[in-house]
């Protein structure tokens, strides 16, 4: 039973085959060694590492998480040991599990180039996901990937250098379609839609922001409709581009909706924190839905929803 489900659930993300269309999102799988005790990792489609930078980062001051209605506002400040230590101590742990996609982040083109170079040819890396939501130190902009020029430049450089598939993670809370088109033209083999949108939570008693870090990000079921919209808009603009829905997928129903909107796979973030087995139960739920509809694979759900009205990306709110 399990074997037949895994076979029927496999999808291809632009040259990156995964056994189920359910991945664990960046920053939600610890340092690679925690997950093994919590879930049968071989039944997870793929796992994205926490975002790795060139230099070590200590990350944001606590508190780093606060609950908001049907969501969380979080900020880790990309805490990570830097790429050198990552390759030495963390990557061997990650590669014991499902296919590993390494998330890379930086504030300058040079940093992305150095990171891609450092990962090049390393055994066990199935793909690279380009985190684009941090500040742009070269251009002095708050969100590096919110601009077509920089998406083109950085995704282009990573894609030209990389020997493995490159997923571009488009920032949330912005007009995603032009950025998605730019990333696709620059050579990304797959797009992750979207990163968490920036958000603010306030500690009323202390009369200050509830988080210690400068920017909070909204995640959890609260953002699901935003994700579905982004996926549908990009799927229409780039019908052949594999898309991964990320943001607010908690149940298999959410996942099926994301596939119907045009995604080839989903990433599970907050839901993995609530229930470490969620990536496996969601995959089972997708299999049950395929069986119910008599479809052979998740790709047959892709974009099967009735035509979605054109709205935001054209800038005319109706």
């Amino acid at each position: 039973m399990t074997a037949s489900i895994r076979r029927s659930l496999s999808v291809d993300l632009g040259g990156l085959p995964i056994a189920t269309p359910v991945m664990i999102a960046a920053g939600c799988a610890g340092t690679g060694k925690e997950l093994g005790g919590l879930v049968e990792t071989r039944r997870v489609g793929a796992v994205v590492t926490r975002t790795i930078t060139v230099e070590p980062r200590q990350g944001s001051a606590p508190p780093r998480i606060v609950e908001t209605p049907s969501g969380i506002v979080w900020s880790t400040g990309l805490q990570n040991p830097g790429v050198d230590v990552f390759l030495l101590t963390e990557l061997p742990e990650w590669t014991k599990g499902p296919p590993v996609i390494v998330s890379i982040g930086g504030g300058s083109l040079e940093e992305y180039v150095r990171l891609t170079g450092a990962l090049q040819g390393r055994a066990g890396i199935a793909g690279i996901e380009v985190h684009l939501s941090g500040p742009d130190e070269e251009m002095q902009r708050p969100v590096l990937g919110a601009h077509v020029d920089r998406v083109t430049e950085i995704v282009g450089a990573v894609a030209r250098m990389s020997l493995v598939p490159v997923l571009a993670k488009i920032p949330g809370g912005v007009d995603v379609v032009p950025l998605a088109i730019a990333a696709a033209r620059a050579g990304a083999t797959c797009l992750t839609l979207t990163d968490s949108p920036p958000a603010l939570a306030i500690d009323l008693a202390a009369t200050r922001p509830a988080l210690g870090g400068p920017t909070g990000w909204l995640a959890g079921p609260a953002v699901k409709p935003l994700t579905l919209r982004a996926v549908a808009d990009v799927a229409r603009a780039l019908p052949r581009m594999p898309l991964v829905a990320s943001g607010g997928v908690r149940t298999s129903t959410d996942a099926v909706e994301a596939l119907l909107a045009g995604a080839s796979a989903v990433q599970i973030g907050t839901a993995t924190l609530l229930d470490p087995v969620a990536p496996v139960t969601i995959a089972h739920g997708i299999a049950a839905e395929l069986q119910r509809r008599g479809l052979p694979s998740p790709s047959h759900l892709r974009g099967a929803v009735a035509p979605i009205p054109v709205i935001a990306s054209e800038g005319t709110h109706t």
């Binding site: 939600c28 925690e34 606590p62 780093r64 998480i65 880790t76 805490q79 924190l273 470490p276």
Partner: peptide, 25 residues
């Protein structure tokens, strides 16, 4: 404040000096 409780999310941060005193994380 913790997100998960089992080491996945990295949100329950406590600033801690390294044992050898060479820095902190």
């Amino acid at each position: 404040r913790m997100g998960c409780g089992y080491g996945l999310c990295g949100t329950c941060a406590v600033p801690l000096a390294f044992k050898d005193g060479s820095g902190w994380d």
